[in-house]
Amino acid sequence: MARNEQLIRQHKLLQLLELSRFGRTLEELRDDLVADLGLTKLHERTVRRDVEALQAAGFDIQNENVQRGRVFKLGQNTTDVHEIGISATELIALSIGRDLLFPLMGTQYWRGIESFWNKVQEAVPNGVFDHYARYRAALHVFGSPTKTYEKQEGMLKTINRAILEHRLVEIEYQSIGKPISTRKIEPYGLAVYQSSIYVVAAESGTESTGQRLRNWKLDRFHKALILDEYFRPDEDIDLSKYLGSSIGIFSGEASAQVKIRLSPRSAAYVREDPWHPDQGLEQETEDSFLLTVPASHPREILPKVLSLGADAEVLGPEEFRSTVAEAVSKMAERYPNVPPSP
């Protein structure tokens, strides 16, 4: 049994028990878990083992016999565990994190975030909340696209279930500028990057897992259908390493070390806002710096280099330099006979 599958199920169990004032029978808990997690089946024995595991972890889950059978509910000690003290600075930090996660609004993830936020608001003293409100009025979080994945909640549930059960998913996917195509994918996980959700998956039927793994943008899914076909996960895949191997979402097993010559002005910008944790920035001459940064695809380098204008030059690899040179050439054709700036 996958460890994360068990943890997700037990977390959902706690949510169900928290919402139940008069307790739930094992059968009721099982039915709710099947419905909320999108499972095909779940035995009551498994639910009982999960309840026992939570009790062993220190949660006060009590049971009693009532007319409809033996019910389980959270005791007072468990309620006390959830009561926390929070300061104004902690409240500010929490609210900023909540703002950054707005793209998850409408999904199962957001419901947990919003439920916790509401409890915090109710728990803090009025004076602390007033202090927080004054500070928060002077601090604004912006720059993230205003979009949510509320309409894709059903697809997210399907994909989550496929990740837990290692099952193939048939999708209708439309890349930008291309027609809709039907694909089969082997999903490994989800990633949130710049307010967009991506499904990290390998396309079924292709060779070499390292080359197959890619990030599929959820916005481009038209349909997701879980299949009664299973895949064997590659134990050598480390999603944290995979996703951190490049600048942006164009991640992969084999990233290139891209070398870019920068002016002192551009180097200062890159020093202030690094492109990658493993980048290197060294001074070459009095008027130039050399930036070395890992990247998996020329398209993730292109917008960053173009944003620096003539103050940045890609030196290599050749594929990355050629991509930027081609873009610059086509842009120059768009602006013929434009006099240079004074």
Rank of each mutant, 00 (worst) to 15 (best):
G210V: 10
Q6V: 13
A254V: 12
D219H: 01
T107N: 02
L100V: 12
R220C: 08
T79N: 10
N337R: 13
V270F: 05
G205T: 00
Q15A: 07
D32E: 15
S307R: 13
D219V: 03
I260P: 05
L91P: 08
P336G: 13
M1E: 15
P294S: 00
F129W: 15
P277F: 03
A256K: 11
F22G: 06
R265D: 14
G316N: 09
L19P: 07
H166K: 09
T158L: 04
V51C: 09
K12W: 08
F221Y: 12
E153I: 11
Y335H: 07
P264M: 03
G69W: 03
R321Y: 10
L218G: 06
P187H: 03
N77C: 08
S204L: 00
V81N: 01
P340L: 09
S266G: 11
R70Y: 04
R212Q: 14
I185Y: 04
K41R: 11
H131T: 15
R111I: 14
R98T: 01
F116R: 07
E122Q: 13
L101M: 12
L94Q: 02
K223Q: 15
K12T: 11
I226S: 09
T25E: 12
E5C: 09
V51M: 05
I247N: 12
I260L: 02
D228Y: 07
L227W: 08
S204H: 04
